[in-house]
Structure formats: structure tokens, C-alpha cells
């Protein structure tokens, strides 16, 4: 039981960063980015280049790759999404799918379809009583918690954080209060780019690096975000943890390969019963 809880928390933390990124971009741009799965894959491969091809230590490769990918995310926004900003949300949805397909196939072209792994030393798992925690899980735990803390501090206590929250809350008022929207949008893509690329590294550590890796995370990430109430970034983290733990405990009654079905059922139940999210009530809209 303790082991299931630990695994569930780690699975939830893996979802937390991309869910936070998705919710962040949604809150400011009102657009659900379906390319987020491909973003995750792309980040993982960029870091793979640094780590394996160029021989950097993983932490350095992860840092460099995350920043590089963040810049790429801003560039994609400029090229693909910005010209469509004034169209309907559905148009942006389809465009984001186009972006996803294009990115994923750039990766397939250069890296092929075979799975790869980061160059890290294999270490024995740590035992705490009867709970086992391997080094990858420990890394995930630490990286995600630190990243979440940083984002939370930025959100709560900095000028940049107030800027993003102001635009998410009331874009017109933010403009007349002197906030330039395009700058906020760029910051949002930078932050979510870093978060998604980092989560790509963590997923790659936890499993393999392969072109499909982000695709399998798309549904859980969306579900976690909807659980949190889609425009509420910090609640998305709570949604991710809830979903991770639920998926893990569901393995008691369902085969492991049906995790996705658990996710889907959670999402359907949620959409039918509480479409504003499990934790979404605090977002004041009236």
C-alpha cells in the first residue's frame, strides 16, 4: 500500500509540470495546446543530444536543453499561433495538432523510431521500510518539487508573476494598467517551455526516450489540468497528484496497461459531474 502511494505520487509529479504548463498557457491565451505532448518529446530529445551526443552531464544537458526548448516554444508561438490569435479557439486547436505532427516527425526523421536512454549511472534503489524508491524516482521527486516551488514563488511574489496573473484574470484591464500582452505571452511560453522540457527529461529517465513518449502523456496531462479547473495553474498540480495516485491504485483492480482507460474514465466522470474542475471553484468569474 505504501509502495502504491509512493509510486502514485511520483507518477503524479511527472504529470504536474506539463499540467502546470498547459494550464498556464491556457489561462493567458485561452487555448488548449495539443502539441504539449510533442513539446515534451522534443525537450527530451534536445537533452539527449546534450547528454549522449555531446557528452555533457545530465543536469547540464537538462538545463541547456530546457532553455533551448523554451526559446523554441516562443518561436513556434510566433510562427504558428500568433497569426491565428484572433481566430476561433477551434482553429488554434487544429493548428496545434499540425504543430504536434510536424515536431514529432522532425524527431522521427533524425532520431528514428527506436527507444533510447540517457547516459546515467545505474544505482541500487533506496529502501525505506518496505517501500522501495529508485534513484530516478528520487530525482523526479526533487526536481518537480523544486520547479513547483520556484514557479509558485514567481507567481505569488514577483512582478512577472503579477503580470501573468493579471493578464489571465482580465486582459483588457491588464493592458490599460500598462502591461504589454505580447511580452507576457512570450514569458508564459518560456516558462512552460522550460517546465515541459524538464518533464520530458524526467519521463525519459522514468521510462525510455522515444518519439511516442509525449503522445502517451497527452491524455493524462489534459485530464490532470481539467481536474484542477483548466485555467487555474496551481490547481493543475493538485489534479496531477490526484490522477497519479488514482491511476496507481487502479492497478489493484485493472491491468497496468489500462492506466489510460482509468485516466479517460476519470476525465469523463469529471466532465459530466464537475466540468469546472475538482479544485476549480476558487477561480472567481463573476
Amino acid at each position: 500500500m505504501g509502495q502504491l502511494l509512493v509510486n502514485g505520487i511520483v507518477a503524479g509529479l511527472l504529470l504536474a509540470l506539463p499540467a502546470l504548463a498547459l494550464s498556464l498557457t491556457f489561462s493567458v491565451l485561452r487555448f488548449a495546446n495539443y502539441a504539449i505532448g510533442s513539446y515534451l518529446t522534443c525537450g527530451a530529445y534536445l537533452v539527449y543530444i546534450g547528454n549522449v551526443v555531446l557528452g555533457m552531464p545530465l543536469w547540464l544537458a537538462a538545463g541547456a536543453g530546457a532553455i533551448l526548448f523554451a526559446v523554441l516554444a516562443v518561436a513556434i508561438d510566433w510562427l504558428a499561433y500568433r497569426p491565428l490569435r484572433d481566430r476561433s479557439g477551434v482553429t488554434l486547436l487544429v493548428a496545434s495538432m499540425g504543430v504536434a505532427i510536424a515536431l514529432e516527425n522532425v524527431i522521427r526523421f533524425f532520431a528514428g523510431n527506436s527507444p533510447r536512454a540517457y547516459d546515467v549511472a545505474v544505482a541500487r534503489p533506496i529502501r525505506l521500510g518496505d517501500v522501495r524508491l529508485n534513484h530516478e524516482q528520487l530525482t523526479i521527486l526533487m526536481v518537480v518539487i523544486v520547479a513547483l516551488a520556484v514557479v509558485w514563488i514567481v507567481f505569488r511574489f514577483t512582478r512577472l508573476g503579477r503580470m501573468m496573473r493579471a493578464v489571465a484574470d482580465n486582459p483588457d484591464l491588464a493592458a490599460v494598467r500598462g502591461i504589454t500582452r505580447s511580452r507576457v505571452v512570450a514569458c508564459v511560453w518560456l516558462i512552460s517551455g522550460i517546465l515541459v522540457a524538464l518533464s520530458g527529461v524526467l519521463v525519459g529517465l522514468d521510462a525510455n526516450i522515444e518519439p511516442q513518449m509525449g503522445w502517451t502523456y497527452l491524455l493524462p496531462v489534459f485530464t490532470a489540468t481539467i481536474l484542477g479547473g483548466i485555467a487555474n495553474p496551481m490547481a493543475a498540480v493538485a489534479g496531477a497528484l490526484t490522477l497519479g495516485i488514482a491511476e496507481e491504485f487502479a492497478t489493484l483492480v485493472m491491468p497496468v496497461h489500462y492506466r489510460m482507460i482509468v485516466t479517460f474514465l476519470v476525465m469523463v466522470a469529471l466532465l459530466l459531474l464537475r466540468p469546472w474542475g475538482l479544485f476549480g471553484t476558487r477561480w472567481v468569474t463573476k
Binding site: 484574470d169 482580465n170 476558487r282
Partner: peptide, 22 residues
């Protein structure tokens, strides 16, 4: 609007004129 605000023009819109979640 942001540039005009920087030049000293302050605006209070009708009704939705605060950041409600802050």
C-alpha cells in the same frame, strides 16, 4: 493602451475593473 498608460492616462473600465482573483 499600455503606452498611453505610461504617459499618465489612467482608465477605470465599467464593471469588470479589478483583477478578481488577486
Amino acid at each position: 493602451a499600455p503606452a498611453r498608460a505610461a504617459l499618465g492616462l489612467a482608465y477605470i473600465p465599467q464593471e469588470t475593473n479589478i483583477f478578481r482573483n488577486m
